[in-house]
Design a protein around this nucleic acid. Structure first.
Lengths: 182, 182
DNA sequence: CGTACTGTACCGGCTGGACGGTCTAGCATG
DNA sequence: CATGCTAGACCGTCCAGCCGGTACAGTACG
């Protein structure tokens, strides 16, 4: 039962390794051997904790849900306001949450028609819904909230596909400032 | 040499099938066997036209370059203006160009560290540059152009990952209309 | 205190299937 | 008969998942 207390457990190390491989090398690089090796665990050890690759994905998504709830809470009370917080965290800051999100996005696109891909997409949709609610509530305008969210998605997309966009965030801030003047 | 004249050639059918499989089933589903089968060609026939999978990718990217140049030209002279044209074509309209673009995005993310992934990313970067130039020229404002482009990327991302966004485009138009009033 | 048993965590060789790529044999048309 | 194109069996590699181990901690019992 491991009592849900021991941290940096083998289980978490495996999930970390899985996410990192997914992010840096794509889904093709995230083989069971590679994950086990990166987590300094044998393949048998990995399969003890996660009986199949699907279970590994499920474990990752479950962890994302937890982190997602915490992120929405932080967004709500962010000093710079929800919008800027949202945009800031839409570019890869190197945080575990970003890593997990990029990993989930890879899975979602890897198997568009499979159940595991569907679960990844459901997870992302749920997160987006949470962010949208905070955005809409704060801006008091659904159209604007949706647009801000799309900009965040764009920033994410550029990051994920590795398209450099240095300074894009400043451009967006500039534009939004003008919008806010209305 | 095929004289660059014969249309709906086996070659094009193979590329079409490759793109469709990439779009609908992800890169894992786009195996040589599956591509050949979908194009109603034998594996040997496929490998006659494209000696390796890399060549298949290269062929797809080359076709995208051609279509991209044509798209930029159409964008420049679009009746509804470059911005709306750009946003309209940022959601999957089901056109061959969109299909090809989604396919390229899949490749770009599949192998972040491989040469073929790099080429796909280069192709996308070049296309984005072309669109940006028209946008910036028309809007006369780099920040706004960059923001519009990010919105387009966001629309694309949502499409690619299969996150429904019914009416998002209208929200964006609404927001941009207000921005344009400045 | 020692022995036997149980459950948890982990190890790594193995297999069967899938996939990229090769090879050779055909077939149509000029 | 040659050339452009197609066919599909075949091969080597890679990978997910399986399975027979090892180590060790607890604990039950005499």
């Amino acid at each position: 039962m491991t009592a849900a207390g021991t941290q940096t457990s083998t289980r978490d190390r495996l999930l970390d390794a899985f996410e990192t491989l997914l992010k840096d090398g794509g889904s093709r690089a995230a083989t069971l051997d590679a994950v086990a090796s990166a987590a300094e665990v044998s393949k048998g050890g990995l399969l003890y904790h996660f009986p199949s690759k699907d279970d590994l994905v499920a474990g990752m998504l479950a962890r994302i849900h937890e982190m997602g709830d915490a992120d929405v809470a932080r967004m709500r009370t962010a000093e710079c306001g929800p919008v800027d917080f949202y945009l800031q965290t839409s570019v890869d800051t190197g945080s575990p949450f970003d890593r997990a999100l990029i990993a989930a996005a890879r899975i979602a696109q890897e198997s568009p028609g499979s159940p595991e891909g569907q679960r990844a997409r459901d997870t992302m949709a749920r997160l987006r819904q949470g962010w949208f609610e905070v955005l809409a509530e704060h801006l008091g305008d659904d159209s604007l909230a949706r647009t801000v969210q799309l900009i965040g998605d764009g920033l994410y997309f550029d990051d994920i596909t590795g398209l450099a966009h240095g300074g894009s965030l400043d451009h967006v801030r500039d534009t939004l400032r003008r919008l806010g003047a209305l």
